[in-house]
Amino acid sequence: MTTPIEPPVPPAKPAPLRPGRKLGPIADGVGSVHRAWLEPLRCTYLNSGLTLSYLSARVPLAKSKLSELLRGTGLYPRWEIILSLSTQLQMPSWPLYQLWRQAALEAQKSNDWIERSSEKASVTTSQTPPLDHRAFRETVEDDYRLYAQVFLDDDQRDTAIANTFDILWLRWNEALASPDTRRFAWNTLRTTVMARTPHIDGRPRPEFGAAAFDTVALRTLTADTERMYQLAESLQLFKAMSRLPDQQLDVMVLRQLYRICPEGVSTLLGVPIATIRSSERHAAHFLESVICPPPETEGNTA
Rank of each mutant, 00 (worst) to 15 (best):
P130A: 09
T222E: 12
E263W: 03
S178D: 09
R21Q: 08
T2L: 15
P10R: 08
L23M: 12
P11T: 04
H285Y: 07
A15K: 07
A284T: 15
G72H: 11
K239G: 06
T191G: 04
M1W: 09
E119D: 13
Q108N: 10
V59L: 09
Q90R: 14
A27Y: 05
G264D: 08
N163A: 09
S178I: 03
F286H: 02
L268D: 07
E263I: 05
G29V: 07
P16D: 02
R203S: 12
L218Y: 01
W100E: 11
V123D: 14
T297A: 05
N173D: 10
K63Q: 06
I161M: 13
H199E: 05
T192Q: 10
A15C: 04
A217M: 04
I273G: 00
P92W: 14
T181S: 00
Q98D: 04
E174G: 00
L85A: 01
E233P: 00
A177E: 08
Q127F: 15
L131F: 03
E39H: 08
E296S: 04
P262S: 10
A274S: 09
M241N: 02
G264Y: 08
V123H: 07
D166H: 14
L257R: 07
A223K: 13
T2I: 14
L257Q: 06
Q98C: 11
D143E: 03
R277W: 04
A210W: 05
V290L: 05
Q102D: 10
W172R: 12
R281K: 14
T197K: 02
E280A: 15
I114S: 06
T3H: 11
P129C: 11
K65Y: 07
T222C: 02
L131M: 03
N163Y: 11
R157W: 01
L176K: 11
V123A: 15
G49E: 05
A135W: 05
G264R: 14
G299T: 14
R42I: 02
M228G: 00
A107K: 06
T192N: 10
R145A: 04
L70W: 05
F136E: 08
D112Y: 12
K13Q: 10
A62K: 14
A302D: 09
N163I: 10
S48H: 03
R42S: 00
I82H: 00
L221G: 01
R18Q: 09
E288C: 07
G209D: 01
P8H: 10
A104G: 11
A223E: 11
E138S: 07
W186T: 03
D224F: 00
L38N: 06
E138A: 08
S242W: 03
S117D: 04
M91K: 06
A185C: 15
W169C: 09
E226H: 01
Y76N: 02
V265P: 02
